[in-house]
Nucleic acid binder design. Sequence first.
DNA 1: ATGAAAGCGCTAACAC
DNA 2: GTGTTAGCGCTTTCAT
Lengths: 333, 333
Amino acid sequence: MRITIRDIAKASNVSHATVSRALNRASDPFISDATRARVIETARSMGYQPNRAARALVTGRTGQISLCLWTENIHNSHQWNVTHMAHAVMQSRSYELLVNLVGYRTLELAEKNLVSPPSVDGIICYEAAPALMAMFSNSLPTHVPIVTAGAYNLLPGVDRVETELMEGSLQAMRHLIGQGKKRIAHLADDLRRDKDARYVAYAQTMTEAGLPLEFLETPSGRAGPRALIRDYVRDRGAPEAIFCHNDDIAIGVYRGLRDLGIRIPQDVAIVGCDGLEDTEFLDVPISTIVQPLDKVLELSCEYLLARIQNPDRPIQTSRVNAVFVERESSASS
Amino acid sequence: MRITIRDIAKASNVSHATVSRALNRASDPFISDATRARVIETARSMGYQPNRAARALVTGRTGQISLCLWTENIHNSHQWNVTHMAHAVMQSRSYELLVNLVGYRTLELAEKNLVSPPSVDGIICYEAAPALMAMFSNSLPTHVPIVTAGAYNLLPGVDRVETELMEGSLQAMRHLIGQGKKRIAHLADDLRRDKDARYVAYAQTMTEAGLPLEFLETPSGRAGPRALIRDYVRDRGAPEAIFCHNDDIAIGVYRGLRDLGIRIPQDVAIVGCDGLEDTEFLDVPISTIVQPLDKVLELSCEYLLARIQNPDRPIQTSRVNAVFVERESSASS
DNA sequence: ATGAAAGCGCTAACAC
DNA sequence: GTGTTAGCGCTTTCAT
């Protein structure tokens, strides 16, 4: 049997309420230092661990935050960065992190009521709005604070930290077009093209320059894009440049082109998006639109914790800009 | 206010006990189909969500599993794979996943009682034994099932899934020595050399071959090793081969050597360990000791769930072998 | 087949 | 300063 505060109370000759006070309120003035010290010592010596469920039941706080993360492919290094950063901030605030990796499958399960939303003090919804909505039967709950974050798939009406990719995407495209490239392809695993800044920037700049669109849909991850681009280039020849929806895809494309002996950037320029550290470790570092992920997560956590403290505060919003970083993979030849 | 079973009871003209039965025990024969259907429908229409804390308090089950993961550096791609796989299995069994990323800092915090162990139905301790022990004040709890997994830092006396790196490491070393390489360095971020199969295999095969040991300590991740190897090679010249403690380090080393214009494998051969997908995406794919991570996590989860069901079953143990996979980075020149 | 009642371990309001 | 007491929402005997 696990030790409860009643056991400690008995052992230290006080009531269980006193034990609770001694243990929880470090600065409660209405308890003598002697009693507190005695209680703490007995608790320690008996190996007491509080029952969190009981505490949660009465306080209405679980001490847990859910990170709800859209993850369609194991190779989404970006998501690991998100997880890691969220964990770091939350740990420093004494919150535990529940990780909910969601994807299209979650949508199906939610339809059939086979998955329910987490019971937590707050939710960080990172590009996972559709799945979160489905888990909540398509009606946003009012009793649990939610922060929506990321570049797209954001929830309406809640605190939000938005990553703005438009400017970075325009920079990237202008950079490619400015080099005189005519055949520039856009490779994405995302179906919602017109809602995505990368696609919009691509389509807009290409159209302005009088160039034909060349959109390619790809599986997520790295292996999929690698195979896809090989087949594509064998069939239709290589574009002069490829703007990839994210860095994992860019890395897959890089490798696929290298498989064919294609030189980067001399034969084909590549631009990715996210700012994964990995892009710097290839023989030809990949140009990418770097997302200030640390800032996004710091803000998200800050907003969430503020909302937990005061549910009635006005909605908090910010927008952080991703910036295009030119590297060798798109250097002018 | 959130809906409780008492609200549903009132609305459907039954007692709250009946509501509990109707909702939870799909096959309780002692309730009429009509009542059950009615209750379920009211619950649905009222948007009822059970209070998990209350349920956990009375059942003693949280429905949560903790993945306790040793993570010293954000760039530990291996850990993301672990997280992802654990999540997949646990989700399919209707468990939520609490992610506890631990490291040296956790040890410090645990000393000061600033971090407590998770209150969950079971813990998967992945190469995180020291931190977990510290959180439990150095005495393993009997009331919560634990599975210890990984290649080292395993807990004694609990279910375990061990990744055996010895054979793969010997294969790798013999492969390098067999090519006639004399100056072979070992690069690791781990301080506990003599407990690590990679170091043991390295030391043993080198000694047998009458070659001098060249051990190098490095920071974790990729950027650290990259910088380190550059400095090292400038000072002392390049070894003929480098056996790296893991693939992140190997990738960092790869890049550091390329920074200096060193060719791989012609000038320096590289071997890593883990089997990260990333190693296949470099211009020169890196030879590595591939860990059967999927198997490790399937087994770990299976053991844990079995133990939760029956705490008295005999200890479960298995050992899975990592195998050396030769790629271009260590091809004989 | 259903209801009444007890109690899980804890916190917090109130009494002294 | 400390003790008494009343639940938090739920599951689970035990009656009926």
